[in-house]
Structures are given as structure tokens and as C-alpha cells.
Simulated assay, not measured.
Amino acid sequence: MIPAPFEYVAPSTVDDAVRALAEGGEDAKVLAGGQSLLPVLRMRLAAPTKIVDLGKVAELRGVREEGDVLVIGAMTTHYEVQRDPLIADHAALLVKATDTVADPQVRHRGTFGGSIAHADPAGDLLAPALALDAEMVVCGMDGRRTVAAADFFDDFFTTALRPDEILVEVRVPKHTGWQAHYEKFNRVAQAWSMVAVAATVRTDGDTIAEAKVGLTNMSSVPVRATGVESALVGQPATAEAIRAAAEHAAEGTNPTVDGNADVEYRQHLARVLTGRAISAAVAG
């Protein structure tokens, strides 16, 4: 199908992009990599009156260090995240999760910030961002503000972004030396996650000193498995201790029911995949 008519603008600065978005009102949409928006437009599931393309805004791309924080531009592609040495050294969980996103073509075009702003609960980057205590820097007509990942995701495909705001960058505290793994369960290759687990741990000898675990598609927003994290800290990095901690994975979750799985099956998957993710992370 052919999309409904819309006005197209391609600003070259963040300020111009924000201004264009504000002028378009609530019916304007931001175009990042386009891997989610363009199919929706073609099927006429959305009919925005204005598209603001961020592809020419150079300041939204790239990865840099600021002290103990990595700053990832919202328009940095998945492909660039996979191969960036700073992310590999200081936020390995993001690399592990990005490796599972769709296929190489999508990873070359899709963007880190676009995936997060899209807020699909089955998306593979939301739970890692939550687990790593990331912060989202957004910009609107009133200037810039920072929103913690725990406060950024509101509901299905809904975030704290206001109609005139764009996601500028994601700030990720360094997790240097932490081991990580992303365990994903899907029906077929390259499909959305039925359930996935983002796990990163810091070990001290044979003991788990710190642990952070995020769950994908176990609610309308990504979820921290705090019960698992608490159960792991101070425990030996053994299969028995990990298995016991993983039993807490489904606590506080509210998974949806669809053609792929019911609540009980998703909660079972959360427990099993959490055990696998933590075991793989500990093993390095």
C-alpha cells in the first residue's frame, strides 16, 4: 500500500528538529531508522500529517565517554552499537542484546534511540537499558531534561516523551568488568521476543557481588527482576544458587496473553531463561 500524504522535513540540528515537530502538533511523527514507522505508514495504520526525519542531524550519532558514563547518540545504529569498543568494554549487555535484534539489514538501518523511543515491550533494547540504569536525555521547546529508564516507559508503545520532544541521547553508567548475557526465546529466527532476559553480573572471586536483571515482554513495559537480583548478591556463582535465584523471576510481572503464550507459560519462560542468562553471564 501507499502511505497517506504527509509533509516531509529533514532538519540538520536538534533545535530545528524540535521546532519542526512542535509546529506539526500531535499528528507529527519522528523518523529515525524507519524500521518500525515505515511499515506502519505503508499499511496506513498511522497517518501523520508531518514526518520529521532525523537522518541529517549529525549530533545525534556516535558514542563518547563522560567520566563514568557512556553517552550513546539516539541515531547511532544497531550495527554501530555492536561494534563500538567503548560499549564492548563498559556496557557489554547492550552488545549482547543488540546482536539478537532482527537481521543484519535491520541492524544497519535501525537506531538505538529509535528502538527505545518506540517502546515495544517485545523490543530487545528496553530491558537492557533498564537493567543498566540508563538515563534518557530528551529535548523539547522548553529545553532538555533527563529521564531515568525506570520512569521513561509508561505503557505499550508509550513513553515519557512529550509531543514536542525527541530523544537525543542515552546515558549509560559504565559497567566495566561486568559479565553479561541476553537470553531470548522466540518462535522463529529474527522474530520478536516471546520472553527475553537481560542479565549482567559482577563477580568477586567465586561470589556474585552485584547483579542486574531486566525482563523483556513480561509486562507492558520492561521489568527489573529485583527478587532475582537480591537473591543472587553474596551467593556463590554455582548452578544451584543461580537456579534458586531464578525462581523469583516472575514475581511482580504481568505478562500479556496472545497467540504465542499465556501468562503461566511466559512466567515459566522467565524463570528458565533467567537461569540460563545468569549462568551464561557468570561463565563469561
Rank of each mutant, 00 (worst) to 15 (best):
A92F: 00
V233F: 02
L161R: 03
V63S: 07
I116N: 06
K50H: 13
A239C: 08
A92D: 10
N186V: 03
G110K: 02
V201Y: 01
N260I: 12
V168Y: 11
R202S: 11
E80R: 04
I242R: 00
V95S: 08
P163F: 06
N186F: 01
E247N: 01
G214R: 02
A198V: 09
R145G: 06
V106H: 01
F6D: 08
A97E: 00
H78A: 08
P85K: 04
A281E: 00
L54H: 02
A246T: 03
S279E: 13
Q35Y: 07
V71N: 02
A246K: 00
L269G: 03
N186A: 15
L126H: 07
L54F: 09
A134I: 09
A20P: 03
E183N: 12
H248T: 00
T207V: 15
D142G: 13
Q35T: 13
M194A: 05
V57A: 03
A199Y: 02
V147Y: 05
A119L: 08
A211D: 08
T200V: 04
N260T: 09
Y8E: 14
A189M: 15
E183I: 04
Q267A: 00
V197S: 10
S12I: 13
F185D: 05
P222Q: 12
A283S: 15
G62N: 10
A20M: 10
F156T: 05
H108M: 15
D120C: 08
A22D: 12
D27Q: 13
N254S: 15
A245K: 09
A249F: 13
V233I: 15
P104V: 01
D84I: 08
G33C: 11
N260H: 14
G25E: 10
T159P: 04
L60W: 01
C139Y: 10
G33N: 07
M43G: 04
T203I: 14
A244N: 11
P128A: 06
V213N: 03
L130V: 00
A149P: 05
D68N: 14
L269H: 05
V172M: 10
D84E: 12
A122R: 07
R44F: 01
I166R: 06
T207F: 09
A102P: 09
L126R: 00
V195Q: 01
A199V: 07
H78F: 12
A277H: 04
L93R: 00
R266M: 09
E80I: 02
E80P: 02
P236Q: 03
L41H: 01
P11G: 12
L37G: 04
Q105M: 13
P255V: 02
V197E: 02
I278N: 06
A47R: 14
D124L: 02
Q35N: 08
A92W: 01
M194L: 05
I116M: 15
V282D: 02
H108E: 14
W192T: 06
T100R: 06
F112A: 06
T13M: 12
C139A: 15
V201N: 07
R271A: 05
M1H: 10
W178K: 00
V147H: 03
N217L: 06
T77C: 06
F153W: 13
D133Y: 07
F6I: 06
V137P: 06
A148G: 15
T238E: 14
W192K: 11
A122T: 11
H268C: 08
A150I: 09
Y182T: 11
L38S: 07
